[in-house]
């Protein structure tokens, strides 16, 4: 019998998708799924060490008051764990160095980007891209089509061609520091998901198929290893057929399209540990 594979969903301080994200982890086959708050990491009552997979769920960390996820990034970078006196952030870096997986969804993706965990070109954890105000200037909840890059090293999207998911954000426009960063992302196949026009199946800059005006229609990126992945749309919001906005009129499978990402993560961990 294989060992237990454990996921941690890091919640608190304004996250709000932890419950359905944990549910998606369970559907994906994780044996243990714990929702742990950032306060428990800060106090030292919990740590990342026992887990194989870290999920950073959507929400409004600190109300996005200083820009999405900025204040939480600041907190993770500068906080000292109360019980041990050790800085908190090295828990994240050693988690990564140990070959474990991180998935950031929406606000979690914004957090990863602002911490520099993504896209981490040349392995450096400095901020190279951002997610900023949608071109529309407003928060929107709408479903979009995404196409996965089959050449991407991303371990989460194996076997996924296109996927239909909701976006629910006001700051989801992907912008790179410069064209060099964009070129590198493209060359290294770190662009995992692009917003597409469902008619042509091609990446699009057209609103609302591209809901925020992201450069190169980017909806999600990974690091060079493919083990760290972030995306703006919400895979955990499409766990069951009845989540689909047209399930009552179209032939929609019982399982939603979201759980596959989590199942891929679990299978990767099972194979590589």
């Amino acid at each position: 019998m294989s060992r237990d594979i454990a996921a941690i969903v890091l919640a608190g301080n304004g996250t709000n998708c932890e419950m359905e994200t944990a549910h998606a982890c369970r559907l994906g086959g994780f044996d243990t799924v714990d929702i742990i708050t950032v306060w428990e990491l800060v106090s030292g009552d919990a740590s990342l060490d026992p887990y194989d997979f870290l999920c950073l769920p959507g929400g409004f960390l600190d109300g996005d008051d200083l820009g999405s996820a900025k204040a939480q990034a600041n907190r993770l970078l500068h906080t000292v764990v109360k019980k041990t006196g050790a800085p908190l952030f090295p828990q994240f870096t050693s988690f990564i160095q140990n070959g474990k997986l991180i998935l950031g969804i929406c606000n979690g993706f914004q957090l990863m980007v602002k911490l520099g965990l993504l896209p981490a070109l040349s392995g450096a954890f400095t901020q190279q891209v951002t997610l900023t105000n949608n071109d529309s200037g407003r928060f929107e909840d709408r479903w979009v089509w995404l196409k996965a890059n089959p050449s991407s090293p991303c371990v989460f999207t194996k076997g996924i061609g296109t996927i239909y998911l909701p976006v629910r954000h006001g700051e989801g426009k992907f912008v790179a520091r410069d064209s060099e960063v964009l070129d590198t992302l493209r060359k290294q196949n770190q662009i995992v998901f692009s917003y597409i026009d469902p008619e042509t199946q091609a990446p699009t800059m057209k609103y609302p198929e591209n809901p925020n005006g992201s450069q190169l229609s980017i909806a999600g990126v990974c690091d060079a290893t493919g083990r760290l992945f972030g995306l703006m749309p919400h895979p955990e919001a499409y766990s069951h057929g009845t989540n689909h906005p047209r399930w009552s009129r179209e032939d929609v499978p019982e399982e939603g399209m979201g759980p596959q990402l989590f199942r891929n993560a679990r299978e990767y961990i099972a194979k590589n540990s």
């Binding site: 709000n16 928060f139 629910r168 047209r246 009129r249």
Partner: peptide, 23 residues
């Protein structure tokens, strides 16, 4: 107005405020 409200967080949305062939 509806689009600017998150109507599916918590993952249990079944009949959303907007429905039909074009949502």
């Amino acid at each position: 107005v509806v689009r600017q409200y998150d109507h599916e967080v918590q993952g249990g949305s079944v009949v959303k405020p907007l429905c039909g062939a074009k949502n």
